[in-house]
Computed example of a mutant assay.
Amino acid sequence: MITLKNDFLTVQINEKGAELTSVIDNDEHFEYMWQGNKETWNRHAPVLFPIVGRLQDDSYEDENQHYHMTQHGFARDYDFVVESQTDSKVVLSLADSAETRKIYPFEFKLTMMFELDDHALMVSNTVANQSARELLFSIGNHPGFNVPMANSTTDFADYNLMFSPKKVYKTIPLVGPFSDLTNPGELELKRPLPLTHNLFEHDAQILKLDGEETTVMLSTTANDHGVALTVQNAPYLGIWSTYPTEGAFVCIEPWWGIADTVNANGQLAHKADIRKLAIGQEETFTYQISYF
Rank of each mutant, 00 (worst) to 15 (best):
K5N: 10
E15N: 11
E15W: 02
G17A: 07
G17V: 04
G17P: 02
A18I: 02
E19H: 04
I24V: 14
N26E: 15
Y32P: 01
W34A: 01
G36E: 12
G36R: 13
G36F: 13
K38P: 15
K38D: 15
T40V: 15
W41K: 03
R43F: 07
H44L: 05
V47Y: 03
V47L: 14
I51M: 08
I51K: 06
R54K: 15
R54G: 10
Q56C: 10
Q56V: 14
Q56A: 13
Y60Q: 06
D62P: 04
E63I: 10
Y67E: 12
H68P: 03
H68N: 14
T70S: 12
Q71C: 07
F74I: 02
R76A: 14
D79I: 09
V81T: 14
V82T: 13
D87T: 08
V90G: 00
V91G: 00
L92H: 03
L94K: 01
D96M: 00
A98N: 13
A98I: 11
R101Q: 15
K102Y: 09
K109N: 14
K109P: 03
L110G: 07
F114L: 04
L116I: 00
D117F: 02
M122G: 07
M122Q: 13
S124G: 09
T126Q: 14
N129L: 02
Q130S: 05
Q130V: 00
A132R: 13
E134M: 14
L135R: 00
A150N: 14
T153Y: 03
T154C: 13
T154R: 12
D158L: 01
Y159S: 02
M162Q: 14
P165L: 08
K166T: 00
K167N: 02
V168W: 04
V168C: 02
T171F: 08
N183Y: 08
G185C: 10
E186M: 12
E188Y: 13
K190A: 11
P192Y: 05
L199E: 04
F200N: 00
F200Y: 12
E201Q: 15
Q205K: 12
Q205R: 10
I206D: 03
L209D: 04
E213G: 01
T215K: 08
S219R: 08
S219D: 04
T220C: 04
D224Q: 13
D224A: 13
A228Q: 11
T230K: 09
A234H: 09
P235D: 12
T242S: 15
Y243C: 03
Y243T: 06
P244V: 09
E246W: 09
E246V: 11
A248C: 12
F249C: 08
V250G: 00
C251H: 03
I252E: 01
W255C: 07
W255N: 05
G257V: 07
G257I: 06
A259Y: 03
D260G: 07
T261R: 12
A264L: 05
N265K: 10
Q267H: 15
L268E: 12
A269E: 14
H270K: 14
K271T: 14
R275W: 08
T284H: 09
T284K: 13
F285R: 12
Y287I: 05
I289P: 06
